[in-house]
Simulated assay, not measured.
Amino acid sequence: MNAYSFVQHLHSGFRYIVLVLFIYTILQAFIGWLAGRPYDNRNRLTNLFAMISAHTQLLIGIVLYFLSPLVAFNSTTMKDPVTRYFTMEHGVMMLIALVLITIGHSKSKKLVLPEAKHKTIALFYTLALLIIIGTLAAGKISILK
């Protein structure tokens, strides 16, 4: 197993940890927001671990990007949907999702009311998760064509 294959498997497997953390965090935030529950240290840590897992996934993805044999910028890169997806679209959209996650986490830390904290996490993390899922679905479609 070479370095590219190892990092590819790591990136592919770690996404499930990120997904589980995000679904749990989003559910916890929506329940806290809609039920008017207090925002405690468990909520803060869950939000933080979800954000850290997303940042870790980004770092693994960056390493994978530079190890990948698909990343070859030439005249055909943007013409081939699979190569374009892996060299541009995937990374840019995941970076946008990560920015939303980071903004949501940062904004929630500055808020005082528990409902506002839960609401901010719920909205920003959900929007980021929708972008992630949409980008992955678009990638599957471009690969299958």
Rank of each mutant, 00 (worst) to 15 (best):
F124N: 05
I121C: 07
T135V: 11
M51D: 01
Y16W: 15
I62E: 03
L113V: 15
G13R: 01
T77E: 11
D80G: 03
Y39R: 02
L67P: 02
L123G: 02
V112R: 11
T83K: 11
F66Q: 12
H55P: 07
E115M: 13
L136T: 08
A3L: 15
F6C: 02
Q8A: 14
I60K: 00
Y85N: 02
T102R: 04
E89Y: 10
R44F: 04
H118W: 05
I131A: 04
I62K: 08
I133P: 10
P114R: 01
M1C: 09
D80W: 00
I101N: 10
R84F: 13
P114M: 02
R42H: 09
H105R: 09
G13L: 00
A138V: 02
L64D: 12
F6D: 11
P69W: 02
A50V: 02
S106F: 07
P81H: 03
T87V: 13
L136M: 12
L67R: 01
I132C: 07
Y24V: 13
D80A: 08
I62S: 08
L100H: 05
K79W: 01
K110H: 06
V92G: 00
L45S: 06
A72Y: 06
P81T: 01
Y125S: 10
P81E: 06
D40I: 09
A116F: 05
